[in-house]
């Protein structure tokens, strides 16, 4: 892989921080405008996410009196750091399939698990009862979606005959066509789509930050720059998760079609967000374990019999 200045540039500028932030912000704007059009409104101007970000970064950051200060202030950075590394890995394997290492799929799964972890730690550290409710919901939801997520990621691994390298998965798809164009692949991609929705914390799975009942739950004590970091992480995830889905199931991101594919996934997520009511946490858990988890098992069985 890269070393020295090359690595620094890639971490901070091109596939890493800056690029992901800008694309994520633009996608956030797309989300808000599409939502506005669904509700027959005009929606915010193009620079809106950037205005929100700069305002939050330069506002006062309040640390609650009885909170665990260190954990409270460090929690937003955990998820952000993971989201800086994840696009690096994704871009690297797509353009250089031979150069990845064994188990990078597992590394990515762990990186994608860090933002909810940071959220849970930060919300618990704030010592706010409303945050605690949000944190417990976030944790429950995480246990709900992680099992179907792993089941769905088993499908490409089984289809390639047990390859755990993301690079090998991309190379296999370039030879034999994307996994999405098979029965097991479609089901697995659907499962991952539901998981993406939950990982982003979008309706119907936004119970951890439900504005109407627990006043933005896990974020309730965060203000200023630390809130901005959470918003930034979420914007980056909004780009990285569709990118991950396209890389693993839809033939990688090495050609120009990938832009349209990522946009298609994003629009699906936005439309699902705008046409569904919020689920209760027990309903969401049941949905992920029995319906989405069941679909995941069916996809794994189909993959075993080579469908």
């Amino acid at each position: 892989m890269w070393h020295g200045w090359g690595l620094a540039f890639r971490l901070l500028v091109f596939p890493g921080f800056l690029f992901t932030v800008v694309v994520g912000m633009v996608l956030t704007w797309v989300d808000r405008v599409v939502s506005a059009r669904v509700q027959w409104r005009k929606g915010p101007p193009f620079l809106q996410p950037f205005a929100d970000l700069f305002k939050l970064l330069l506002k006062q950051t309040v640390v609650p009196e009885h909170s665990a200060r260190l954990a409270f202030m460090l929690a937003p950075v955990v998820g952000l750091a993971a989201m800086v590394i994840a696009p690096l890995l994704l871009f690297y394997v797509s353009f250089n399939p031979a150069g990845s290492f064994v188990g990078d799929l597992v590394v990515l799964v762990y990186l994608l698990a860090l933002p909810p972890l940071g959220l849970i730690v930060g919300a618990s550290a704030s010592r706010n009862p409303i945050s605690a409710v949000g944190a417990s919901r976030e944790m429950t939801l995480y246990f709900g979606y992680e099992l179907p997520f792993l089941l769905a990621l088993l499908v490409p691994v089984i289809k390639t005959g047990g390859l755990l390298r993301l690079g090998d998965l991309v190379a296999y798809q370039q030879l034999h066509g994307p996994f999405l164009y098979s029965a097991s692949g479609v089901i697995a991609a659907l499962v991952v789509l539901a998981v993406v929705q939950a990982k982003l914390g979008y309706v119907p799975f936004d119970m951890a930050e439900a504005e109407q009942e627990i006043m933005s739950g896990v974020f309730v004590e965060y203000s200023g720059a630390s809130l901005a970091l959470f918003k930034l992480t979420k914007a980056m995830m909004f780009f990285i998760l569709p990118l991950f889905l396209v890389t693993v199931f839809w033939g990688g991101i090495s050609d120009w079609w990938a832009i349209l594919k990522v946009l298609a996934v994003v629009v699906l997520v936005i439309l699902a967000k705008n046409t569904n009511p919020r689920l209760r946490i027990d309903q969401a858990l049941r949905f992920f374990w029995f319906i989405i988890g069941g679909l995941g098992i069916i996809a794994v069985i189909l993959a075993f019999i080579k469908l």
């Binding site: 808000r32 506005a36 509700q39 027959w40 409104r41 005009k42 929606g43 915010p44 101007p45 809106q48 205005a51 929100d52 305002k55 506002k59 309040v62 504005e211 109407q212 627990i214 006043m215 933005s216 974020f219 309730v220 004590e221 965060y222 203000s223 809130l227």
Partner: peptide, 20 residues
């Protein structure tokens, strides 16, 4: 939606910590 204050970037937030 009739007045759509999100055109000016105004959003209703649930926590005074987020408010301007």
């Amino acid at each position: 939606p009739r007045y759509d204050v999100e055109r000016f970037g105004a959003v209703l937030v649930g926590s005074p910590r987020h408010a301007d």
